[in-house]
């Protein structure tokens, strides 16, 4: 039986996320299942996630087909396919501020990228955070509920015993749900610029 959720302080969260405090880049493979509530179907995919501090993210889907999403302060670039047949879409221009880029099409990605910085201070300011403690495998489970309405109703995070992100569940406001399971990451330490 799961323990009752208890609020998590910024200090406690920072302690749990210390694995990420000093990394410069992180690469990890993931398996994803997207549940589409209205269609009653699951979309399965797998790929690789790369984080480059402070704010660059590459989200690369390898199966069922190759799609690469590159996000940074300059905007979002989605590349489908490879080689000559590759098509590129840019959703926002470079100089726009984060708030301006909160259009409906890309707001989920923006929120996710902001979340993936795993900055305890920023997360504590934007989310109400609770935990159900640590399970028998040593994994800690946290639930993040946005303080302001956004594309996600809540996010569930499981940290592995070693401290890295093991599982992430994104409950979209629309009722769709994404579950991502991450392999042990390859990390390059160093302070972010």
């Amino acid at each position: 039986m799961a323990a009752d959720p208890t609020p998590v302080s910024e200090t406690a969260l920072a302690e749990k996320l210390r694995f990420y405090a000093s990394i410069k880049t992180l690469e990890t493979d993931f398996h994803q299942v997207k549940d589409l509530r209205d269609l009653g179907m699951q979309m399965k995919s797998e790929g690789r996630l790369t984080l480059r501090r402070p704010d660059a993210v590459i989200w690369e889907v390898r199966k069922p087909a190759r799609v690469k999403v590159e996000l940074d302060s300059k905007g979002i670039r989605i590349t489908s396919g490879e080689g000559k047949s590759a098509t590129v879409q840019t959703f926002s221009s470079s100089e726009m501020s984060a708030q301006m880029q909160k259009d409906k099409a890309t707001s989920s990605l923006h929120d996710l990228v902001a979340w993936l910085k795993l900055d305890a201070h920023a997360l504590s300011e934007q989310y109400a955070i609770t935990t159900t403690g640590t399970d028998a495998r040593g994994q800690s489970r946290f639930v993040f509920t946005p303080k302001k309405p956004g594309p996600f109703a809540s996010m569930e995070m499981e940290l592995a015993k070693a401290g890295h992100l093991a599982k992430l569940v994104l409950n979209e406001a629309s009722g769709d749900r994404m579950t991502l399971e991450f392999a042990r990451p390859k990390v390059v330490k160093g302070s972010a610029p």
Binding site: K44, V61, V69, S80, K104, A105, S108, L112, S174
Partner: peptide
């Protein structure tokens, strides 16, 4: 490719 794009967290509209 479009199916793969649809797996991204891009929101209901997209």
């Amino acid at each position: 490719e479009t199916f793969a794009q649809a797996t991204l967290p891009l929101g209901r509209e997209l």
